[in-house]
Design a protein around this nucleic acid. Sequence first.
DNA 1: CGAAAACCGGACGGGTCTTTCCGGTTAGTG
DNA 2: CACTAACCGGAAAGACCCGTCCGGTTTTCG
Lengths: 228, 228
Amino acid sequence: MTGQAAQLPRVSPHRPPETPRLRADAQHNRDRILAVARETFATLGLDVPMAAIARRAGVGVATLYRRFPTKEALVTEAFAEQIAACVAVVDDALADPDPWRGFCSVIEKVCDMHAVDKGFTAAFLSAFPDSTVFDHQRAHAELGFVKLAQRAKDAGHLRADFAQDDLVLLLMANAGIVTQSPEAALAASRRLVAYLLQSFRADHTGPPPPLPPTTPLGLQDVFYRPKP
Amino acid sequence: MTGQAAQLPRVSPHRPPETPRLRADAQHNRDRILAVARETFATLGLDVPMAAIARRAGVGVATLYRRFPTKEALVTEAFAEQIAACVAVVDDALADPDPWRGFCSVIEKVCDMHAVDKGFTAAFLSAFPDSTVFDHQRAHAELGFVKLAQRAKDAGHLRADFAQDDLVLLLMANAGIVTQSPEAALAASRRLVAYLLQSFRADHTGPPPPLPPTTPLGLQDVFYRPKP
DNA sequence: CGAAAACCGGACGGGTCTTTCCGGTTAGTG
DNA sequence: CACTAACCGGAAAGACCCGTCCGGTTTTCG
């Protein structure tokens, strides 16, 4: 290790660390691209072609690639704030004095986010397994959730045999809920989460809480098509 | 409706309904293709290229397409017997005198099948939504499951607010369990099913049954990569 | 205002996947 | 054993998709 420069992304030799400041129109286009990408990824998932995003944003493909050198970079940046929101959800829950409520709120909020946003689910579940951009935040959130689960267990609300991997299990199961309409996805996700939270609970005093309603839509709507 | 021939798949004008009888080598190749397709779809999912299946089967791409005019046709035929097995599972369960055990066995067996076979999951969840080949069998199985659920409710074992759509919910959730190793998928699926069955149960007498073990593998292994 | 730097978009290269085409080969029969 | 219909495999057509190149345009600043 002769110098730390080798470990950093290549930047201009000795000038402002990371902000060359874009021209006004370029900045405007960049913002537009990001907004469109977020919306498109949320609706159609991560598989939309880059050209589609460029077209919707009203720019050429080259402009898109000038700002985001690769599709992965675009995805990463598009979901950065959602990842941050997830971390915040965990931190908020840790601040809640009620361990069980905190535990539930994390699961409910994160699953809601995933149910509403197809692309976020894919991005979160490591659509790009080589990407290490979010590793730090994910580790932080995971650690927070471990604390949360332990507190809930100690308080006797969470069953003792709840495993850490069960969070991943739940997230993957929730990711399986893919429907045509976002409303149906949200309703289905809520119902699944309600079922699972009931199983996670250790102390069953009184009747179980009522379930969220089933999706008012037909069964067919629940089936999805991978290649629209 | 002048003639029923228009509704049937095109067959030779007035000869055995559907069996032009292949030449020996052709039949051999066809069987081989089907076997390879089943194994490959199970391991890698439905996204494997047709050329890969042809190569593994030791035939050319054209031979593959000569027997199965489209990829969908190959998938359909490859999973026909699994679909039939699913239907049989429901019928078996209806023969079980214990309503709750029958209800559980359907869910457990079907989820096991899906956990072990990536491609089956995708095919089952209408990867080809326009295909109507399995509609009849699916309808039969669904009807059987409705009966099963009703019996379990009447016996007081299944919660009254269990909805028909909850089966689809569970299947989709189970489809979300995608891992690198089949063993991990099976373990995770079993655990998810155990959690959900516990929530589905109405009468909680005594302690809940123990959960299947968590996957012995690390967390990373649970995360999957869509494009290997 | 005018010139340079930054920016723009369409066309293009390289890759993958499904499906088709065509000349050579083989199984089965009289 | 010879002939023909059925069969075979590789090459290629057509459709996408990611990422790059290049000639023209716009912003910005002295």
